[in-house]
């Protein structure tokens, strides 16, 4: 019998792995992949609570909004990464220190 906790554990693993990617990677595109993992884990939680909770669809609707915002976020973030690459010839996040005083 698969319960809510099973899904929460998978989601926790996804979240922690995404966090590890965000913390340890220096390449901007790789950090974005970590952010996607975290957003996916949140979505998995929303859908799981929608399935095992009071039985309405609101969790799924919220997950659709999360997917929309993830798409917008990736588009803008990649635009910034491309501009950084043009400026510094690298996508290493440590090179983005132009604003540092």
């Amino acid at each position: 019998m698969i319960t809510l906790q099973h899904y929460l554990i998978v989601s926790a693993a996804l979240f922690s792995l995404g966090m590890l990617g965000i913390l340890t990677r220096r390449n901007a595109v790789n950090v974005l992949m970590g952010v996607e993992l975290v957003l996916n884990s949140a979505n998995l939680n929303l859908v799981a609570f929608s399935r095992f909770g009071s039985g309405n669809l609101q969790g799924q609707l919220f997950a659709v909004f999360v997917i929309v915002i993830a798409a917008a976020e990736v588009a803008v973030a990649l635009a910034i990464v491309l501009t950084l690459y043009r400026l510094r010839r690298t996508s290493n996040l440590d090179a983005a220190d132009i604003l540092r005083g």
């Binding site: 979240f15 966090m19 590890l20 913390l23 039985g55």
Partner: peptide
């Protein structure tokens, strides 16, 4: 690794120990 696994342990602890208000389900 330390931060991510610490987070993992905390989240698992909360997920397993909490009495989730599960309803009739869908």
């Amino acid at each position: 690794i330390i931060v991510a696994s610490g987070l993992f342990v905390i989240v698992i602890f909360v997920a397993v120990r909490t009495q989730w208000a599960t309803g009739p389900g869908r």
